[in-house]
Design a protein around this nucleic acid. Structure first.
Length: 255
DNA sequence: AAAGAACTCAACCGCGGAGAA
DNA sequence: TTTCTCCGCGGTTGAGTTCTT
């Protein structure tokens, strides 16, 4: 382990990029593709460290960058994802095509953070944090197991008191035995989707354990059309009572 | 019109994971 | 097993811009 020494080399340019530097970098990436960032400064002659080159490309020069103001829909999605994921900007950005993690982070810090009533972490973010503090927790193990891909699911959500490896958490909507939370493990990243509005808050206990699958992993969904996804998606016995709302939630998510 | 405050956002920085040597 | 490099992430900085007084 160690830090790359490139950023400590003297004689490197700092500050705003020039048009010439942009062109050199753009031409190089178009010719060689992304990847091998360590070779970029040497092979282009750009007097920047590879980190600066990567950042410039990803946040500014990439052709699929979406320019212009964040739309209302995007803002709404950012707020919801931030409630679920906390400051995991790259994951949030992954759900907003054309937007960069830096842009979303800046937008959050300058615009949205000021609008939030408080700085408390989201309910789901707190659940994840709590789980990570308990190494024996199934959820924590899943989070740490990068190879896990859709094999752990929520089996039971109750409104009862905390027990076992259950996690005390606050989430929204008082609907006994219902589940409006889709949890999935995909390529090592946890994808949490909370489809509820925040009009009502109450304490809910969430228990997770390994066992029956709630649904096929999201990774397999991505190969299918939304219609096919809806056909194969099925809730566990624990949430059958709210199956209609869960299908709506899933449809909303897929949309 | 001028000066200071507040804001914006591109860029920098340090850290840590992953994988190669 | 250890060391090194590559890579990506999130927090922070600071120059430029806009707003307020």
């Amino acid at each position: 382990m160690g830090r790359s020494p490139c950023c400590h080399k003297e004689g490197l340019n700092k500050g705003p990029w020039t048009a010439d530097e942009d062109k050199l970098l753009t031409d190089y990436i178009k010719g060689r593709g992304e990847g091998k960032w360590g070779k970029v400064p040497k092979e282009t002659g750009i007097k920047r460290c590879w980190k600066s080159c990567r950042l410039r490309w990803l946040n500014y020069l990439r052709p699929d960058i979406k320019r212009g103001n964040i739309t209302h829909d995007e803002e709404d999605l950012i707020i919801r994802l931030h409630k679920l994921l906390g400051n995991r900007w790259s994951l949030i950005a992954g759900r907003l095509p054309g937007r960069t993690d830096n842009e979303i982070k800046n937008y959050w810090n300058t615009i949205l953070a000021k609008r939030q009533p408080n700085n408390e972490k989201s309910s789901i973010a707190r659940v994840v944090d709590e789980a990570c503090r308990n190494p024996d927790n199934v959820l924590a193990k899943a989070l740490q197991d990068k190879s896990m891909d859709g094999n752990l699911v929520i089996n039971r959500i109750t409104a009862e008191s905390q027990s076992g490896d259950g996690l005390s958490a606050s989430t929204s909507r008082d609907q006994e035995n219902s589940m409006d939370l889709l949890m999935d493990f995909n390529f090592g990243d946890i994808i949490l989707s909370d489809f509820l509005d925040d009009s009502e808050m109450f304490n809910m206990n969430i228990s997770v354990r390994e066992g029956d699958a709630l649904a096929p992993p999201l990774a397999s969904y991505t190969q299918l059309s939304p219609e096919e996804m809806l056909q194969i998606w099925s809730p566990s016995d624990y949430i059958l009572a709210s199956v209609d709302s869960d299908f709506r939630s899933l449809a909303s998510f897929l949309e």
